[in-house]
């Protein structure tokens, strides 16, 4: 029953009776994985291109962020799940990024 209800988030009051309603078909995950693989290839290529540092680092970080969010959204089902989970996880993530970037700034690492 999971396969045919792809991509629709369940309504809040729907009884989740133990099976996963809202899981997309397997082919959907395969597509995501292919995109992720391509993005990885782009990253590796980017690191060999010898572009100006700003472009290279910026590009790498951008692709990294896209990959991160894609896994979280699709594989970890944040897209389909309750917003509470997104909030809890991303608050930890954002906190980590801001605190550690601030600390590294005081070391003048960048």
């Amino acid at each position: 029953m999971a396969t045919d209800t792809a991509l629709t988030a369940t309504g809040d009051h729907e009884r989740a009776d133990g099976t996963e309603h809202h899981h997309p078909p397997d082919s959907y995950y395969v597509r995501i994985a292919i995109i992720l693989a391509v993005l990885t290839a782009i990253e590796v290529a980017l690191s060999y291109l010898g572009a100006p540092t700003l472009v290279e680092v910026g590009g790498l970080l951008l692709v990294m962020a896209i990959k991160f969010v894609m896994v979280a959204l699709h594989f970890m089902h944040l897209k389909f799940d309750s917003k509470v989970l997104t909030r809890v996880f991303y608050s930890g993530l954002l906190l980590a990024v801001s605190v550690y970037v601030a600390a590294l700034l005081t070391f003048r690492v960048f």
Partner: peptide, 12 residues
């Protein structure tokens, strides 16, 4: 990365 795919397929 591919292990993530197989993992999500296990969940499905």
């Amino acid at each position: 990365l591919m292990s993530s795919l197989t993992m999500v397929l296990a969940v499905a």
